[in-house]
Simulated assay, not measured.
Amino acid sequence: MTPVLNTDAVSLSPIALFLQADIVVKIVMAGLLLASIWTWAIIIGSWLKFGRIRKSVEKFERDFWKADDIDAFYKVHGESDLPIARVFAAGVTEWRRSTAGGNVDRDGTRERLATAMAAAAAAEVDKLSDKLNVLATVGSVAPFVGLFGTVWGIMRSFTGIAQQQNTSLAVVAPGIAEALFATAIGLFAAIPAVIAYNRLSHSINRIEARLNRFADGFHSTLSRQLELEGRR
Rank of each mutant, 00 (worst) to 15 (best):
A119K: 10
G186A: 04
R96Q: 15
E111P: 04
A142Q: 06
I191P: 00
R97L: 14
I161P: 01
A196S: 10
A119S: 13
A193I: 07
V134N: 09
I161M: 12
R206Y: 02
S168K: 14
N205D: 15
L113I: 09
A116L: 09
A179E: 00
G153I: 05
A120N: 06
M117Y: 05
R106H: 13
G108F: 03
T159A: 15
V92D: 04
V151C: 07
I207C: 00
I185H: 07
V87C: 09
R96T: 10
V141E: 00
N133F: 04
I195A: 12
L128H: 05
V145E: 00
A209M: 13
L113P: 08
R96M: 13
G186P: 04
P192W: 01
Q165Y: 07
T115M: 14
G175D: 00
V141Q: 05
R97M: 13
V125G: 00
A177Y: 12
A196P: 01
I204D: 05
G153S: 05
V104A: 06
G146V: 08
P192T: 01
R96A: 11
G101M: 10
A173Y: 03
D126P: 07
I161G: 03
T167K: 12
Q165S: 13
G186M: 05
L200P: 12
F144M: 10
W95S: 03
V138G: 08
D130Q: 14
E124H: 03
I154C: 05
R206T: 08
P174R: 02
I176R: 12
R106T: 13
T150A: 01
A116V: 09
A122Y: 04
S157T: 11
A142I: 07
S129Y: 00
T99L: 11
V125E: 03
Q165M: 14
A136Y: 04
V171A: 05
G149Y: 01
T93E: 12
G149M: 02
A184Y: 02
W152Y: 11
A189G: 08
F88K: 00
I207L: 01
A136G: 14
R199Y: 13
L187W: 04
G139V: 02
A177E: 07
A118P: 14
A123H: 10
V171H: 08
R97I: 10
L180W: 06
G160Y: 00
K131R: 14
T167E: 01
A136C: 09
N198L: 11
R97S: 12
I207S: 00
R213T: 02
S140T: 08
L113G: 04
I176P: 14
V125I: 10
A114E: 15
F88T: 00
A142D: 06
T183G: 07
